[in-house]
Every structure is written in C-alpha cells, then in structure tokens.
Design a binder for these strands. Structure first.
Length: 138
RNA sequence: GCAGCAGGUCGGUCUGUCGCUCCUUUCACGCAAAGGGGAGGAAAGUCCGGGCAACGCAGAGCGCCAUACUUCCUAACGGGAAGCUGUUCGUGAGAGCAGAUCAGCGUAACAGAAAAAAACCGCUCCCGCUUCGGCAGGGGUAAGGGUGAAAAGGCGGGGUAAGAGCCCACCGGAUGCUGCAGCAAUGCAGUGUGCCGUACGCUUUAUGGGUUGCAAGGCCAUGUAUAUCGGAUAGGUAGGGUUGCUCGCCCGAUGCCGAGGGGUAGGCCGCUACAGGAGGAUGGUGACAUCCGUCCGCAGAUAAAUGACAGGCACCCCGUCUUGUACGGGGUACAGAACCCGGCUUACAGACCGGCUGCUUUU
RNA sequence: GGUACCUUGGCCGAGUGGUUAGGCGUCGGUCUGCAAAACCGUUUACGGCGGUUCGAAUCCGCCAGGUACCU
C-alpha cells in the first residue's frame, strides 16, 4: 500500500478537504442520506458547486457519548488517520466532472475504541458509500 | 527494620515510515521544497483575585454580597508565610475547627418543675383555726426536685427562720489597671472587681465590591431594520432611563414625510513577550524581595493542529526453569490549551529528596 | 469558551433546623356472577462524600449527573 506514493495521490488530508461553515453543515444534515457502519453513522450528500476538493469530510465525536476531552480527541485523530489512509478508494468511485461529495462520520459507540476497530468501520463505510453512489447516479 | 506525619521535586525515552498545524526563507507560486516551533502539573472544576476590553457614572439615604486573631508577603485575593489563644481528634510527629462586638433581641424539638424570666413541688417564718394528723392566708427562698446535648462556676466554712458569692479561704474562668518581654495577637508577675452556663442566628462595627465578559470589543466586503436626527402634529401628560429600592435628577409618545445605516452567516484584528522562565549572588526564620557585562525565546488551532503504525530501551508485576546481565506474557497514571496571569480545589500508575514521630532489634 | 440554575418513591410535587405532606400509580382486601367505579389498607424517597450543630432534605464546602442562555 505504501508504493502508491509516486502516482500523485499521496495520503494527505489538509484543511481544504474538511467541511466548514454553518450553512454547508446544515445542508448536509437536513438533506443528506445516511447509513450505519458500526461504530460510525455515515451522512453523505452530493453537491453541485465544485470547491477545491472532490470529497470533503467531517468527523464528529459527540460529547454526549464520550465525556472526556482526551477520549474525544483520540477518537477523532484515529478516525481521521483511518480515513486518510483509505480515502483514495472513495475518490475512484466518484463520477468525474459533476459535483462533489460531502461525508460526515459520526461516532456512535459509548466508549473509545482501538485503531483496528476504527479502521474496519471506515473501510466498511467507504466500501458501502461507493456502492451506494454507483447505484444512485445511474 | 516496620508503621506513620507534614513538606518539596519529577511524572518515561530512542529509532524508522506515513501525516497535521504555525512561522521564516527560496522558487517554477501550489495540496511545493528546506529549516525551525508545537499541551499540563493539574491545560480540569470555574471557586476567588487581577490584567485587558466595552458600556455606565450629579448627589443623598437605605439595602445586597464577601471577608473578619496578629504581623508580614503580594499587582490583588476569600491565597500564602511566620506566629498567638481556645477547642476536638490522635500514644505521638501533627491535623481539623473557631476567634471583631460596648449594648440589645430571638430560637433551643422530645424529655424535664424550669432552657434563663417568672411560676410549680419542696424548705422555712409570721398570723389564724385545729379533731394535733394538718389546713387556709400573707411573706422569704433558689440548697434539693436526675430530665436533657446543655441546668445558674467547684469544694469547704461562716451565716441564716430556711437559704443563696450573702460573706470568707482555696481552686477554675472573665475583665480593668500596673510592670516586664514582644512590632503585635499574646504571655508572665503583681493587684483590683463576686463579674460567672452553652450553641446558633439576628443585630452591630470595620474593610472591600459599578456592570458585563475575548461569543468582550474593533474593522472589511455583502446587504438592508420599528437605532438615531430633522419637519409637521401637542400634554412636559402616559411612560422610560438613572446598578436592587426611595428621594432627587434626566429624557420624553403612536402614525406620516425625508435623511440615515443595525444584526445574522463569511473573513481579518484582538492573539500571544511578559507581575516571563532558567541559573547565580545578596537580604529575610519564611512567604518573598532586590540585583546581574549570564543564558533561553517557549503552542496559537478556529467544525478547531500537537497524531498513527512498527520496533527497541528503562521501570514494575506474573509465570517458567538451566536461578541469570535468561526466556515468555502483561502493565506504565490522571488527563488535552481556546484572551492572559496569581492562587484554591479536585483527579493521578509510579519514582525521588531531606526532616520529624511511634514501636521494635542490635551495639 | 463563558454565564445562570436544578436534583425529594415508578411519575408529579409540598416541605426555611426537630418522626419527609399530598395526588397518580403498584399490590392486597371489601363490594360484584366477573370487572369498572367507590371505600379501606399497604409498598417504595431526600444524587454522593465531608463539615457546622445535641440534631441537616434544609446551612456551608467538594464531587457527580442534568437543564437553560450567550445562539
């Protein structure tokens, strides 16, 4: 997996690929579709305007489920790391040229998990998201 | 050696690969490259105190909140240091709590005669009656009346009709004066006053407190309100402002016409360099202060960076045996900055430092 | 990030230092052929840990959980 470095698609994840702004988040949660990929709930939406990145992501760890800031920070970092290492599978599924994808990963477990669990959840989520987009866009 | 008391310090580290964010430099200006910085002792709770910012502020009275032994430290504090007195706990090292007040007021369930004032039972005197057992009336008492968390300082003597600090000796406390020690709280000595229950609250005295908090507040572009100003309209009225109230003071109407340009979402500033840290010297019992031809530059994110994976080292625990510089397995806390500081409180695996106490052993 | 407040049985809710009201509900009984209604009885509480006090749901600290506002 480490040898895909040289084809231009590196495992990076910068600020541009994150969803910011109240209106955009509001639109995602009110009009987007969702499914479960334990320990995550995935919310996604295809938008018509085209910002810098083709896929934007939002990771949410609810304070209601994890009381301590340390746990929330760690789960967010693990989730981000897993997404960073697997996101190129998702951009391959996207129909080129038209619109872009907003995705939110919401942690729904009541206690922190280890990296293996998070990675499994993210891989499952990305696989399922790819299949769903393929079927809806045709 | 074991158990403990109070205080202080630290709280993993190295390598590789892949990342995140900020700053600087370079360039072919981008999702680039290079170099450098990147969580804590509590960053936490938001319990105090300040800085900073905006708004407010003629004056007077009342109210509200906080603090309360002494001296000192400090920018300030409800914090800290050193000490004083009492009390509770502990064998002890020590720890917790309390400590303005001359005067006044309230409360103290149940029990108990009574919760501080009197009354009641009882004791006792006088007078009258008497069936000589007592009874009625008028006084004097607080020694006894065993309950309670708490009962009118304790004990002995004198005194008396009976009694009582009513008087006296001794003891315990309170308080005034004098002397000595101390900056002081206070201590010691002498002397005067018979002044003598406890707890809590109200009250009172002194000191401090304007309100709101960086989501404060300012700017930009987009955009356009019942802010505000002027005109006509009329009564200094309704009402509003003035920290919670009162006085006082100030402003002052819907609707119409014209001018005018607020907030939300977005971006930028505020935003990280100062009561700064390390080291040394001097002064001080100490908190701390002063000084330096000294060294360091030490997070600034904004749907919110400071991470992930792999391997080693260090420390601890368990197991195995070939008892070792072995092998295998497991563990390494509490916890994540959001304007910044000083404290307090709470959470915390483990390690270290010197001091003190009790018990025990040896000499 | 900041500010204000709340916590009493299964639920609602009173209680300003002296044995925690009341209502709804649960369960049992009376009544009834059986049930409902009615009546009688019964069960279950002061968020946790300390302190002050003779005595704390109440007063004072610390902690936990929850709510609202700046939005």
């Amino acid at each position: 997996m480490l040898l895909s470095m040289n084809d231009g698609e590196r495992f990076r994840l910068t600020k541009i690929e994150r969803i910011t702004g109240e209106r955009r988040i509001e639109s995602l949660f009110t009009q987007g579709s969702s499914f479960m990929a334990y320990p995550f709930r995935v919310v996604w939406q295809i938008r018509n305007e085209r910002p810098a990145a083709s896929v934007s992501v939002l990771i949410s760890i609810p304070k209601k489920r994890l009381k301590r800031a340390v746990d929330r920070n760690r789960m967010k970092r693990l989730t981000r790391e897993a997404y960073r290492l697997h996101k190129q599978h998702l951009s391959g599924e996207l129909p080129a040229g038209e619109g872009h994808l907003d995705v939110a990963f919401i942690y729904v477990k009541d206690e922190p998990s280890d990296y293996v669990t998070v990675e499994k959840g993210i891989r499952k989520a990305i696989r399922e998201l790819g299949v769903t987009i393929q079927t809806t866009t045709r």
